[in-house]
């Protein structure tokens, strides 16, 4: 039970960050036509920033259900990697339910908390952090949908970039040590810009196509030295 309380404390700053980003995500959800309850439900089920953003865009574009499954898989595929890594950090003696719960709540932040523990992670530490931060995520989304229409346009405009700030905070720091990542980011920016401006492809399609092409190109041109067990 001590683990749970410690985890809860660690979850407070994570939850505050989540709240701000989820609010911005709520603005995107509102433009796809979701009501606050639907936004709350989506965030409670998905716990995914990029994944939810991609899904809201896809809903707006009224994609077929099969394409929705594909866009969900592609925009969340980084969790496959984390799931593999996390599987090594769960005590083989631990009950199966912990694998399901930790998997369900696998986000970049909870992942970082879990893998930093030695030799195995304490699931209750994670549950503590999740019990504060996950409600912040779901409530923030609902509030973003509710308030997005009430707040002045100026404020909504500023808040709508919060989500992209979070993305930048994830993709940019590794550029310091990895030239291939820098090249792939620049290539992604340029090709995404060109496809959005000079073709009629939907944004969901562009995301799927470019992710597969550019990541594949990266894997061929820049093999990762000495493996990549770290994510």
């Amino acid at each position: 039970m001590r683990g749970f309380r410690e985890g809860f404390k660690t979850g407070i700053p994570i939850g505050l960050g989540y709240f701000a980003v989820a609010f911005s995500l709520g603005i995107a959800a509102a433009s796809a036509g979701l009501d606050p309850f639907q936004g709350f439900l989506t965030s409670a089920v998905m716990n995914a920033s990029a994944g939810e953003n991609a899904a809201f865009i896809a809903m707006k574009e009224a994609v077929p259900y099969l394409q929705m499954a594909l866009i969900t898989v592609v925009s969340n595929i980084r969790y496959v990697l984390m799931s593999f890594a996390l599987s090594q950090k769960i005590d083989p003696q631990a009950k199966m339910i912990h694998r399901f719960l930790l998997g369900f709540f696998l986000t970049d932040e909870y992942f970082a908390l879990a893998v930093s523990q030695e030799p195995y992670c304490d699931p209750f530490f994670s549950y503590g952090a999740i019990s504060f931060a996950a409600p912040c995520w779901a409530l923030g989304t609902a509030l973003g949908i509710l308030m997005g229409n009430i707040l002045p346009a100026r404020i909504v405009s500023a808040l709508s970039v919060a989500l992209f700030g979070m993305f930048l905070a994830i993709i940019i720091p590794p550029v310091r040590t990895s030239r291939p990542i820098l090249i792939l980011i620049v290539l992604s920016f340029v090709s995404s810009f060109l496809l959005s401006r000079f073709t009629s492809l939907s944004q969901s399609t562009v995301t799927i196509v470019l992710t597969i092409l550019i990541s594949g190109l990266g894997a061929i041109l820049f093999p990762v030295k000495g493996g990549n067990d770290e994510t």
């Binding site: 990029a50 953003n53 991609a54 592609v74 925009s75 595929i77 980084r78 496959v80 990697l81 405009s157 500023a158 709508s160 970039v161 992209f164 993305f167 930048l168 994830i170 993709i171 590794p174 291939p180 990542i181 792939l184 980011i185 992604s188 920016f189 090709s191 995404s192 810009f193 959005s196 401006r197 944004q203 562009v206 995301t207 470019l210 992710t211 550019i214 990541s215 594949g216 990266g218 894997a219 820049f222 093999p223 990762v224 493996g227 990549n228 994510t231």
Partner: peptide
Amino acid sequence: RDFLYYVPYVTLSVMTFPAIIDAT
């Protein structure tokens, strides 16, 4: 392995630009 390693950077980049200039 390498493909999965690069995926998050590419997906998030593609979703960030030009979307960020269309959001404001």
